[in-house]
């Protein structure tokens, strides 16, 4: 039974990705494009040279963190759709601290990163509190919080950070994660030190979940709230804690964008989609820290590679969005894949 479970844990994501790519090929064929050319362009766009490689890693960085944000909450049985809003407030807070504080790098940068973490954590705290104390479903609250984050942030950029402009000033060097060394290494891509922070965050999640009592309690609450309650765990506290940590991960993702990739924050007409992609990442990565990193690399490569597809193969970049959406469907419907595998095995015997 356990070996079966482990096998499915690995097989289901792989089969889902393959099915998604096959579906993508069929879509390209039926819209009159050459799928081999399309996927070759995708590959070149993601790993073709040192520049694209740097950009792929740059794009993977926030995806790892939003993936962790969704996965962590999921361990406690919570669905954090609010990663999107947590990213936005984290981004805002990090850039804000980057702009208004004047300090040497050793204080300034950690402070700016911390601001992102705290802002994201606060944005996760409220849904957690409502869930724990009044039993309000976190999905709806986090969706609403996303919009509140989006509109309020835009307003703050326009009337507080700037004088009715759409983009803030660029943060000073002392708060920046950008690295001239990494950039020169990758032919001036926007690769920055954030990837190390993201990998560290993945390690921290693994450590909390697998090696601490806190993690054990968080998981226990996810499995069975009543049993956890009877064995003396504080269910409310664990729910709130889980949402706060999840929000902190997403806020950190926003800080990566603000302090690393862009160095500023602009008025957004819509979502960054980092949070929603984080759901895909967490799902494909089976809510496990290591899986999340792998899934984030896959989606980061798909999204970065997509940029090359229109010029090299005439395929619109949105093909990748369709593929990712289909992969989510296949993983979510893994019931079918499991059934098919079991059936296949039976016939073999």
């Amino acid at each position: 039974m356990t070996s079966n479970k482990k096998m499915f844990g690995i097989l289901v994501p792989i089969i889902s990705v393959l099915l998604g790519l096959i579906a993508g090929a069929i879509i390209m064929l039926s819209s009159g494009h050459n799928p081999i050319k399309g996927y070759a362009a995708l590959w070149n766009g993601a790993f073709g040279d040192s520049y694209t490689l740097g950009e792929t890693i740059r794009r993977t960085t926030p995806l790892i963190l939003t993936g962790l944000a969704v996965a962590f909450a999921f361990k406690t049985g919570l669905f954090n759709i609010g990663a999107e809003g947590q990213v936005i407030v984290g981004w805002l807070a990090a850039v804000w601290v980057g702009l208004v504080i004047d300090a040497p790098m050793i204080i300034h940068l950690p402070l700016a990163v911390l601001a992102g973490i705290i802002a994201g954590g606060i944005w996760g705290f409220l849904p957690g509190l409502l869930k724990a104390k009044i039993g309000v479903h976190e999905v709806i609250v986090t969706i609403m919080m996303n919009y509140i984050a989006l509109y309020s942030t835009n307003e703050i950029i326009r009337s507080v950070l700037t004088d009715q402009k759409t983009t803030s000033e660029t943060i000073p060097q002392t708060a920046s994660l950008a690295s001239a060394w990494l950039q020169s290494l990758t032919f001036y891509s926007r690769l920055h030190y954030g990837i190390l922070i993201a990998l560290l965050a993945a390690f921290i999640m693994w450590f909390i979940i697998e090696r601490t009592t806190y993690g054990y309690e968080l998981k226990a609450v996810g499995f069975n709230q009543h049993a956890s309650n009877y064995s003396g765990m504080n269910v409310s506290k664990n729910i709130i804690l889980s949402m706060v940590i999840a929000g902190a991960f997403a806020g950190l993702a926003g800080a990566m964008e603000g302090l690393g990739t862009y160095g500023n924050i602009s008025v957004m007409s819509g979502y960054t989609n980092l949070g929603f992609d984080g759901i895909a990442v967490a799902l494909l990565g089976s809510n496990n820290a290591f899986g999340v990193v792998l899934a984030a690399i896959l989606f980061g490569a798909l999204k970065e590679g997509a940029g090359e597809m229109p010029t090299a193969a005439g395929v619109p970049t949105e093909l990748v969005d369709i593929i990712i959406a289909l992969i989510i469907f296949f993983v979510a419907s893994s019931y079918m894949i499991r059934w098919a595998i079991l059936r296949f095995k039976k016939e073999e015997n």
Partner: peptide
């Protein structure tokens, strides 16, 4: 028996993807 929220999120991504594609 897929998670309904996950499936809904996928519907959102899929619709924008197909529409713009």
């Amino acid at each position: 028996n897929a998670n309904q929220v996950v499936s809904g999120v996928a519907i959102n991504m899929l619709a924008v993807g197909i529409g713009v594609y």
